[in-house]
Design a protein around this nucleic acid. Structure first.
Lengths: 214, 214
DNA sequence: TGAAATCTAGACCGGTCGGTGGAAAATTGC
DNA sequence: GCAATTTTCCACCGACCGGTCTAGATTTCA
């Protein structure tokens, strides 16, 4: 079971580090616009090392995307899934969205949007493996959000009806926020959008008896 | 003032036709993934003719995008701007969105999403001219939507408050719908999303006196 | 008919693309 | 030390990239 120490010359680099910087480049420029030469210079590795470690450019991209999704999931979705506060967890999610998907993912100065969304649009169903990742991403978003909303219903904060539809609507809004972000919207604009989303969520709140609906 | 008939050999093709098919290709594949060779074969023109008529690949792309925006504006935004029905116009907008942005723009079998959104994501602020087009697109969306909502307010259908925020939220949702569409969501899923958007709009309706808030 | 103007066909350009192969370097077990 | 193994370096590959150029075809005007 224990894998023996490999024989031969040892790697001179940390594959994880290389993957991390490759991820950053793909995230910023997309797949087609990133050349092997670009990857060489930002990872500091030669082509052969990259090939040896990851296979083709496309394989490397897929690996980078998976890594991105892992991080994203932990940062954005896990809290939604494990939270116990119902609506507060949903608000917290949008608060995280406001301050940038990049937080904790080492966001650069430039705005990159969400790497998964960028990839889905660039490939547009062309690449089955990427489409699968994209599908998983959307499903996880919806299920995590629905989970939090269902908990909110249990807590009596909102109605039990049409929770899935609500979750899907929030997915669409989050997608929209990311598109806006990537296309250069100001922090103010993104902030306003997040506020609107949170208002929407707040509007689902059951009124204790009759009071202000908003 | 009257431009005289040009001297020399006349064009053997309709520039508009070429632009139309180039638009279709860029729409489907994006900018980087579309080669001059691809453009030659789908337009049926040689490089020199394309260059003669449109300049560089990038110029051609920009022209194609402008054409797309013209059509899109007329099909999607003009009705919103000239409508007189308030909320009904907004519902009609989403109904148009449901049946595909491609309608009237000769949507192909495959799903292409919105060409402008695809472009904004692919370039991500890299290209100033495209960014300008994207900005104009978003602004027009928001202003047209706000116009319709303001008319709805005048008709007493909704409150006058936070109309701009509502319009921006609807933009985010529409962006999200297009992303979902491009990344291969089924017609059913898109339909559910549009339904949720319409429900949201409907929820803004002022209750005549007390009746159902939803 | 001929000069000027414009367009088309397609060969051609240097550069870059993603990817490969081979020799040298570095480590292992023996 | 030696064979085996693996990685690194870097030159090199054919293909294709966006873009240019020239020769010849086709038109208008005189």
């Amino acid at each position: 079971m224990s894998d023996s120490r490999p024989v031969g010359r040892p790697l001179e680099f940390q594959p994880d580090d290389a993957l991390e910087s490759a991820m950053g480049l793909f995230w910023e420029r997309g797949y087609e616009a990133t050349s092997l030469q670009d990857l060489e210079s930002t990872t500091g590795l030669r082509r052969s090392s990259l090939y040896n470690a990851f296979g083709s450019k496309h394989d490397l991209y897929l690996r980078a995307m998976s890594r991105y999704l892992d991080k994203l999931g932990e940062l954005m979705f896990t809290p939604l899934e494990t939270g116990t506060e119902g609506l507060e967890d949903v608000h917290a999610f949008f608060e995280r969205l406001r301050h940038g998907i990049g937080k904790g993912l080492e966001a650069p100065h430039s705005v990159r949007g969400c790497m998964m969304i960028n990839g889905m649009i660039e490939f547009g169903g062309t690449d089955p493996k990427l489409a699968l990742l994209g599908d998983g991403f959307c499903r996880r978003f919806v299920s995590a959000m629905a989970l939090a909303l269902r908990r909110a219903a249990e807590l009596g904060q909102i109605d039990r009806e049409s929770i899935d539809a609500k979750a899907r609507l929030l997915l669409a809004i989050a997608l929209g926020v990311n598109v806006s972000s990537r296309s250069g919207a100001s922090a103010r604009e993104i902030g306003a959008l997040v506020d609107a989303a949170k208002d929407l969520v707040a509007s689902w709140r059951r009124t204790p008896d009759r009071a202000a609906a908003r």
